[in-house]
Nucleic acid binder design. Structure first.
Lengths: 82, 82
DNA sequence: ATGTGACTTATAGTCCGTG
DNA sequence: ACACGGACTATAAGTCACA
C-alpha cells in the first residue's frame, strides 16, 4: 500500500502551494526563482512528482524559506489527508 | 558551479550520520528500520547520493525523527563546509 | 561494519504543446 | 495562470560483489 506515498507527496504539494500563494507568486515565477520548470512545480503541487533533496532545497530557496520551514508540519498534514 | 550541490549533500549526510550514531545504530540497522539498502545509506552519508523526498521521509522515520528535525540547521552546516 | 564501482530499471526534470 | 499530456535526457533507486 503506497497510498501513504501519495499522501505525503500531496502534503508536500499543498505546503508548497500554500507558501507560494501566500507570497502572491505564480508557478512560473516560483519556477524562475528556484530554477525549476513551471510544469514541474505544477506536478509537485499536485503531488505527482517526488522531488530530489536538491530540488527541495531549490524550492525552499525560491520561497525564501529554510528546508525545515518548508517541511514543517508535514507529517501532521499527511495524517490529515485520507 | 555545483560545488554547492556537493556541499549541501555532504551537509545532509553528516546530519544523517550524526543522528544515526547518536542512536548507536549501524548503517545496516538504520537500513533495516528505514527499508533502505545499507549501501544506499552509506552513499547518503557520504554525500554521493541525492535522495528523493520519499527516501528522506523513510530515513527520518528510521531515525525516529520528523523531516524538519532531520533537516534542521542544514543550511548553517552547508555554509560551514568549504 | 563500511566504502566503493558497477550496473539496470525507474523516475526526476525539461520542453513542447493543448484546453 | 494553471492542469495535464507526450517525448525526451539526466539522474535517482535499488542492489551486488569485493576491498
Amino acid at each position: 500500500m503506497d497510498e501513504s506515498r501519495r499522501n505525503i507527496l500531496r502534503a508536500l504539494g499543498s505546503q508548497v502551494k500554500r507558501h507560494r500563494t501566500k507570497l502572491g507568486l505564480s508557478q512560473e515565477e516560483l519556477g524562475f526563482r528556484s530554477n525549476l520548470d513551471r510544469t514541474y512545480i505544477s506536478g509537485v503541487e499536485r503531488g505527482v512528482r517526488n522531488p530530489s533533496f536538491t530540488a527541495l532545497v531549490s524550492l525552499a530557496s525560491g520561497l525564501g524559506l529554510t528546508l525545515s520551514e518548508l517541511l514543517d508540519n508535514l507529517e501532521v498534514e499527511a495524517r490529515n489527508i485520507k
